[in-house]
Design a protein around this nucleic acid. Structure first.
Length: 879
RNA sequence: GGGCGCAUAGCUCAGCUGGUUUAGAGCACCUGCCUUACAAGCAGGGGGUCGGCGGUUCAAAUCCGUCUGCGCCCACCA
């Protein structure tokens, strides 16, 4: 047995044991005859760094995986990273910009070379950081969504859906991010109420020859810079105010282009002026109106958000600059009637925060209809459960309204769309360039590879991450329905639990379910545990800009990984946001200290063989054994419901309050005295069970102490010890013991109140049942001698349950004080009795309530009466 | 605007299908203690009429309605 340092030193211990675990490949899993327990990591961005959200997520993952491992399952936690096309590409662009290099200037290949360089440099830092946290990932299985095999899986998937007819190319109004120069999906647009203006503009009626008359209509718009792209003015056909406009033509201010007045139900009569300018190229709804009325589409804003030559005026100006300028021009031309302040929701890009520009563009789409329907069934039928289940509603709503998924992105970092265009503008889709050429030659015999041009776009990142639970095991499976799953996929799929945030329920979770059902015919995981968002204690989201997010590695360095894990878990119930505060990590560190010191105490004891076991120790062992069993049951129940913080708290209390504060105090020999063998063995046995129980949450300190307990063989670890099993529980005994604990409390309270030293022994008298078995425990913890007979004078008394405890305090009892204390208690008891009797006096109650409930009330009544009698007797004795 | 969810001690939360000695935990707080495992500790203590109102019931923190205050998701009334 090693000598323990006086203080727990996490830094040293953590590195030592993590290396030991890695060296022995304890985290590695291979299929075998055991039941698998599988988790795939939510892959962090490859160039990301660890933040508190990762800490929360991966701590939970690690707790689950370590628990499963100790339950005897073949636990496999697959780690990896996500190429995160937009996020990574914008980082690389920014980095090149610092060097004065523009992406467009160096071209695709050169840019990708830089991107890979950056990936090699920064990629996987986060995985290194996870090791510091103690994450027991199977690092041999580390995957990257853009590694060759997984990229192939993505391409195969694309071809598969294309052949199935579910992928199509279409011109659609997309959310254009003018900064990232790419379309983003609806889900990547954040709408925020934004202060702007409502400009009321006069459009003069044309005389038919393109000249203005003196009549005009008024439209209200927030985007005056788009008027040059107007294709019509639209009114509601029921709007009497605008009947006179029927069939008229109006002139666009400044450029005097003639456009018709049309009618459509879409226009709200009571909003704005009831006249809507229709700009099909730059507004989603207008585009739809345009389709209905066959309006021309005129694009006047370019990819960078600048007006182009089709605008005729303000060409080359940024849209927001143009807005300011055109307002002035409209004012000067007499077309500006008035300007109102106006707040409306504006879409911003999640990545770049640029104002989204609705833009028509050719994009690739994946049909969602069937995929969404099946994925909804998976969850509704319970094959995949959501924890907490409130997210079912959100999920259902989304799945029932899923729009086709725009899967193309105008980026370079990602899997390039496997479509090749022929010179005639038609295209072929194939898994490889060779296949593409073969396909093309079927269309145009003799065509060469040089004549084919591959689509410039890459696929949405989620189009690769949705395959994650499959592709990490067998990248050949997605897109190849006839493929026989390899050994890994057959064994590990479906995975068991997924831990992730509710913010990516549609991006990722739903789509993994779709892919899982499509390619495996089976849900990808049984349970999805949704964590909350980590906030600071003021409730603000952790963010770099606010500077309120601590660096997890600093925290680990300061408090230790176990402490950080505890700090994170203490306040994390599923689905609730986490209000993180460093004091929680301190609490974790303190707990480590407590565990450490408890072993220092026990390890310092000398065993005297043959020594008799003191009665107090015997009772203590019996009690803790029962309590341990009861708590193990509780903990298992909590785990089964994913109530991880409750499981932790149950063990925390058992370890600290029951084992340390009560049990050890009971069995602790006097200073320098030896301990008997039975007590010692029991104590060490309990300690080991406690270590095993808490190991999933605190892997490092538990391994350190478990190894310190005795000489372990090389290659032994607490990681593979079995979760302690609960034995039978003597509830009656536990109840009696708890009552004795209350007596101890009462006596200690008296001591504090009367300033009596714990060293001064006191006599105590009981009226009511207090098993003799527990007297030695009272003696040891409260330093009281239980006496029988009449307490006599000079006592103070309190009631525990129905037992009256009188403590002899000769000379220390202040009669008036004692009287008021007893009277207060008496009043309370009488109030209680009254309440109970009111209930019992109600005939409806006795007639309707179940017998057991009525019996309980009668017992309460009897108990209260007994207490009142005891109190009254005490009061009499005082007089 | 629509949908969902939440309001229980100073803070974070339990309280599962209404009834278990007139509501629990952890932390924080207050009062004593440097008692040779631990002051990052020990012992003791105070603190809530379960957001408001109404209803169902013998019985409501728990079920229903409503109001108020928060949160989230969906939705570009230009």
């Amino acid at each position: 047995m090693n000598e323990l340092s006086a203080k727990y030193n996490p830094a040293e211990v953590e590195d030592k044991w993590y290396s030991y675990w890695i060296h022995n490949r304890f985290f590695h899993s291979e299929p075998d005859s055991r039941q698998p327990y599988t988790i795939v990591i939510p892959p962090p961005n490859v160039t990301g760094i660890l933040h508190m959200g990762h800490v929360l997520n991966n701590t939970l993952n690690d707790v689950l995986i370590r628990k499963a491992r100790m339950d005897g399952k073949n636990a496999c936690w697959v780690p990896g990273t996500d190429h995160a096309s937009i996020a990574t590409e914008s980082k690389v662009v920014a980095r090149l910009k610092e060097k004065g290099i523009r992406k467009e200037d160096i071209g695709r290949e050169e840019f990708l070379r830089h991107a890979w360089e950056w990936k090699e440099e920064h990629g996987g830092i986060i995985l290194q950081q996870l090791r510091k946290l103690g994450a027991s990932c199977d690092w041999d299985r580390t995957r990257f969504t853009m590694e060759p095999a997984l990229s192939r899986a993505v391409i195969n998937t694309f071809v598969y859906f294309y052949k199935k007819g579910w992928i199509y190319k279409g011109v659609r109004m997309v959310n254009w991010d003018p900064e990232a120069l790419t379309a983003v999906s609806d889900d990547e647009v954040i709408h925020r109420d934004t202060q702007s203006h409502f400009y009321h503009l006069k459009y003069f009626i044309s005389d038919g020859a393109g000249n203005p008359t003196d009549k005009y209509l008024v439209i209200a718009t927030t985007r005056p810079e788009t008027i040059m792209a107007d294709a019509a003015i639209c009114v509601n056909p029921k709007d009497e105010r605008h009947f006179w406009l029927k069939g008229k033509k109006v002139l666009i201010p400044l450029i005097n282009r003639e456009i018709p007045v049309i009618e459509d139900d879409y226009v709200e009569m009571d909003f704005g002026t009831g006249c809507l300018k229709v700009t099909p190229a730059h507004d989603v709804h207008d585009y739809e109106i345009g389709l209905r009325h066959n309006l021309p589409v005129l694009e006047i804003i370019d990819d960078h958000g600048r007006l182009n030559e089709k605008a005729q005026i303000l060409v080359g100006e940024d849209r927001f600059v143009a807005r300011k300028k055109i307002v002035k021009m409209l004012e000067e031309s007499g077309n500006l009637l008035k300007v109102e302040d106006y707040t409306s929701p504006v879409g911003y890009s999640e990545r770049t925060n640029a104002v989204i520009e609705p833009k028509l563009s050719a994009q690739w789409f994946l049909k969602m209809e069937t995929l969404a329907k099946v994925a909804l069934e998976t969850v509704e039928s319970g094959h995949t459960k959501f924890i907490p289940d409130k997210y079912m509603n959100t999920y259902r709503h989304w799945m029932e309204n899923a729009r086709d998924w725009c899967i193309s992105r105008q980026l370079w970092w990602g899997q390039r769309i496997p479509a090749w265009y022929l010179p005639d503008g038609s295209f072929v889709v194939a898994e490889t360039p060779e296949d593409a050429l073969a396909e093309a030659q079927k269309k145009v015999p003799g065509i060469t590879a040089a004549e084919l041009r591959q689509d410039e776009d890459v696929l949405d990142t989620w189009f690769s991450s949705w395959l994650w639970p499959i592709s990490v095991f067998d990248p050949e499976a997605p897109g190849h329905p006839d493929h026989k799953p390899n050994r890994d996929l057959a064994y590990y799929y479906p995975t068991n639990d997924l831990v992730t945030g509710p913010d990516i329920i549609f991006f990722w979770v739903a789509r993994m379910i779709m892919a899982g059902e499509e390619f495996m015919g089976k849900e990808p995981f049984s349970n999805v545990y949704f964590t909350g968002i980590v906030r600071d204690k003021l409730g603000r989201k952790m963010s770099k800009t606010l500077g309120n997010s601590p660096d997890p590695l600093d925290l680990i360095a300061k408090y230790g990984a176990d402490a950080v894990r505890i700090g994170m878990l203490l306040c994390s119930s599923a689905g609730n946001d986490i209000f993180y505060d460093e004091s929680q990590v301190e609490q974790g560190r303190n707990f480590c200290g407590k565990i450490w010191n408890s072993w220092r105490l026990v390890s310092g004891w000398n065993v005297e063989e043959g020594a008799a076991q003191p009665e107090a120790s015997r009772v203590a062992v019996k009690w803790f054994d029962n309590l341990l069993s009861r708590t193990i049951r509780e903990v298992e129940d909590h785990y089964s419901k994913f109530r991880i913080s409750d499981a932790l708290m149950a063990i925390y209390k058992l370890f600290w309050h029951d084992y340390c504060s009560c049990y050890l105090e009971l069995v602790k020999p006097a200073f320098g005295e030896p301990v008997d063998r039975r007590t010692y063995d029991a104590t060490v046995g309990f300690f080991e069970k406690l270590l095993k129980l808490i190991h999933p949450v605190m892997p490092f300190i538990t391994e350190e102490l478990w190894q310190a307990m005795e000489q372990r063989r090389e290659g032994e670890t607490i990681m593979f010890q079995r979760t302690p099993v609960a034995g039978p529980v003597d509830e009656a005994f536990l109840t009696a013991f708890a009552q004795a604990q209350e007596v101890v409390n009462g006596v200690r309270g008296l001591r504090a109140q009367k300033k009596i030293s714990p060293k001064q022994a006191l006599d105590v008298f009981f009226e009511g049942s207090m098993p003799e078995e527990l007297w030695p425990m009272l003696a040891k913890l409260a330093n009281v001698k239980v006496c029988t007979g009449n307490p006599g004078e000079g006592v103070t008394s309190f009631i525990v349950g129905t037992v009256k405890c009188s403590v002899s305090l000769e000379g220390l009892v202040d009669n008036s004080e004692e009287r008021s204390r007893l009277e207060a208690e008496l009043a309370r008891q009488k109030g209680f009795l009254e309440g109970v009797r009111r209930k019992l006096g109600n005939e409806n109650f006795t007639a309707h309530a179940p017998e057991a409930v009525v019996a309980m009330e009668r017992k309460k009544e009897a108990d209260a009466l007994a207490r009142i009698e005891a109190l009254e007797k005490s009061l009499e004795a005082l007089a």
